[in-house]
Design a protein around this nucleic acid. Structure first.
Lengths: 254, 254
DNA sequence: CAGCCGGATTTTGCATGCAAGATTGCTGCC
DNA sequence: GGCAGCAATCTTGCATGCAAAATCCGGCTG
C-alpha cells in the first residue's frame, strides 16, 4: 500500500457523522485519488471491509457518487469509475460557464437592493488584500481559493433561482467542474499569481455589470471567466507527471 | 384506472424489475399525483407496507427521487416532498431552454455528416403526418408527444457532449422541466393544435440552422422554443381546477 | 484448437432485527 | 397557567444473513 489508505488512519476525524456520510467522503477521495482503475468493477464486500462500514451505507455512498457523475451504474449490476476525456473536461467547464453566465444575468435582472452585492464585494476586497505582498505565499494561495469559492457561491445565491443554483451545484460537483479545479496543487503556485490577478479582474467586472444591471454583459463576462479553468487544464496537460499530481488527474484518459 | 393508487393494483406489471426500481416508479407517481402534502414528512414504515417493499429498496428510491429534485432531505432526518412556486417552474423551463440551446449550438458546430440529422428530420416528418387530419384526435395527440420527445432526445444526442447531455437529462427530469410538460392532459387537446403547429415550425427551424451550421441561430431558436412550455403553464394557471388535473399540478404552490 | 455449455463460486439484492437518536406527551415546578 | 425536564414511543441508521442472479472456470464437443 504505497499511498496509504485514509480509511486505515484517522478514524477519529470522521467518526461523528453517519456511516453513509463517512463512506461517501472516503470513497470520493479514493476515486479521485485514482485508487481504482477506470472501467474496473467496484466490489462491495472488499471495499466495505476496507472502509470499515457495512454494505448498506456503502451502497448509499456508491449511489450518491454515481449521481455526482464520478461512478457509472452498469446495467448488469455493479459500479464502475468513470473515465473522462479532455473533451469531457472542456465541456464540463463550459457547462459551468453557461450556468454561471445565466446566474449573472439573472442576478443583474433581479437585483433589488445593491447591498445584496456585499458578499461579492467582500470577496473581491479580501482577494485584493492577498496580493499585498509581492510574492504569493502558500497561505495567500489557499486564501485565494477560499475567496474564489466565496465569490462563485455568492453569484449562485444572487440569481434568486433555486433551480439554477441547484444546476450550478451539480455542474460544479462534476469532476473538474469546480471553479477551483486545477488550482488545488502547489506546483502551480509559482505561476499562479498572474492567473489570480486576471481572475480578480474578471470578478470585479462581473460585479460591476450586475451592480449596473447590465444583464447581457454580466452573462458574457461570467461565461468567459469560466474559461480561465481551461488555461489551467492546458497547462496541466502539457506535463503528464504534473497531471498525475493534480487532484483527479488520474481519471483523465489521454 | 383513473386515479386509484397503483400500489394497490397491478402488481403484476412491474414485478419483474427490481424492488428498488418498482418502488422508485410507484413512489414517483404517488408524489407527482399529490398523494403527500408538500412539507409533510414521509415515514418509511407505513410507506413500505403500502408499496409492498421493504425499507431498504424504499430508502434507495427515496434517495433517487431526492436527487431528481422531487423530494428534499431534511437535515434532521427524513424526506419531505418539495413544493414548487410558479417562479421555480418558469426557471426550470428556462434552464432547459438554456441547455438545449447550448446543445443546438454544439450540434451545429460539431456536425460532421449531415446524415446524422436523420433522427431530427424523421421526427419532423412524422409530426407533419400527424396533422393530415383537420381535427386532432387523441392518437395524434399522443403521437405528437412521442415525436416531440424524440426530437428533443435527438437534439441532446447530436451535441456530442456526455456532460451536456447529462445536464439536459437532469433538467428535464425536474418537475415541469420535461419538454412535454403541461401537455399530458386531454383537456388541452382541443386547444393544442395551434401550439403543436408552432412547435413543429420551431423544430424545422432548429434543424435547418444546425444543418446550415449556424450555431448562434440554432442556440437562439432552441432557447426560445422552450418558452412554448411557458404558454402552456400560463394557460393552466388561469384555471385552478384545470391545474389540479395536470400531471404534477398539485405540487405547485399558488 | 476454438467455442459452447454446465456447475461452482462470487456478488449483489433484499428482508429482518436491533440499537441509537429524535419526537411527543406528560408531569411537576415555578 | 406556562415552561422545563423526563420518559415512553416512534423513527431511522445500520449490521447480519440468506437467496437469487451473475460471473468464472473447466470440461466437452465440433
Amino acid at each position: 500500500m504505497p499511498s496509504v489508505n485514509p480509511a486505515e488512519h484517522s478514524p477519529s476525524e470522521s467518526r461523528s457523522a453517519s456511516q453513509t456520510a463517512r463512506a461517501t467522503l472516503l470513497l470520493r477521495e479514493m476515486v479521485i485519488d485514482g485508487q481504482f482503475r477506470p472501467g474496473e468493477r467496484i466490489k462491495e464486500i472488499p471495499l466495505s471491509t476496507r472502509l470499515h462500514v457495512s454494505r448498506i451505507p456503502l451502497r448509499l455512498a456508491l449511489e450518491r457518487l454515481a449521481h455526482e457523475g464520478l461512478l457509472e451504474i452498469r446495467a448488469t449490476r455493479g459500479f464502475v469509475v468513470q473515465q473522462f476525456s479532455t473533451t469531457d473536461i472542456y465541456d464540463a467547464i463550459d457547462l459551468r460557464g453557461l450556468l454561471e453566465g445565466a446566474a449573472a444575468r439573472l442576478a443583474a435582472e433581479r437585483l433589488r437592493d445593491p447591498r445584496d452585492l456585499a458578499p461579492l464585494r467582500d470577496s473581491c476586497v479580501a482577494m485584493e488584500a492577498l496580493f499585498d505582498k509581492r510574492k504569493l505565499t502558500l497561505e495567500a494561495f489557499t486564501g485565494f481559493i477560499e475567496q474564489n469559492a466565496r465569490f462563485h457561491k455568492g453569484l449562485a445565491d444572487l440569481c434568486r433561482s433555486r433551480i439554477l443554483r441547484r444546476a450550478i451545484q451539480q455542474a460544479s460537483s462534476l469532476p473538474f467542474g469546480s471553479p477551483s479545479a486545477f488550482l488545488l496543487t502547489q506546483q502551480f503556485v509559482a505561476d499562479s499569481r498572474h492567473l489570480f490577478l486576471v481572475a480578480l479582474d474578471h470578478h470585479r467586472d462581473i460585479l460591476d455589470a450586475i451592480a449596473g444591471r447590465e444583464g447581457a454583459r454580466a452573462e458574457t463576462l461570467a461565461r468567459e471567466h469560466a474559461r480561465l479553468a481551461r488555461r489551467n487544464l492546458d497547462a496541466a496537460l502539457k506535463d503528464r507527471e504534473l497531471l498525475k499530481s493534480v487532484r483527479g488527474g488520474k481519471l483523465i484518459e489521454l
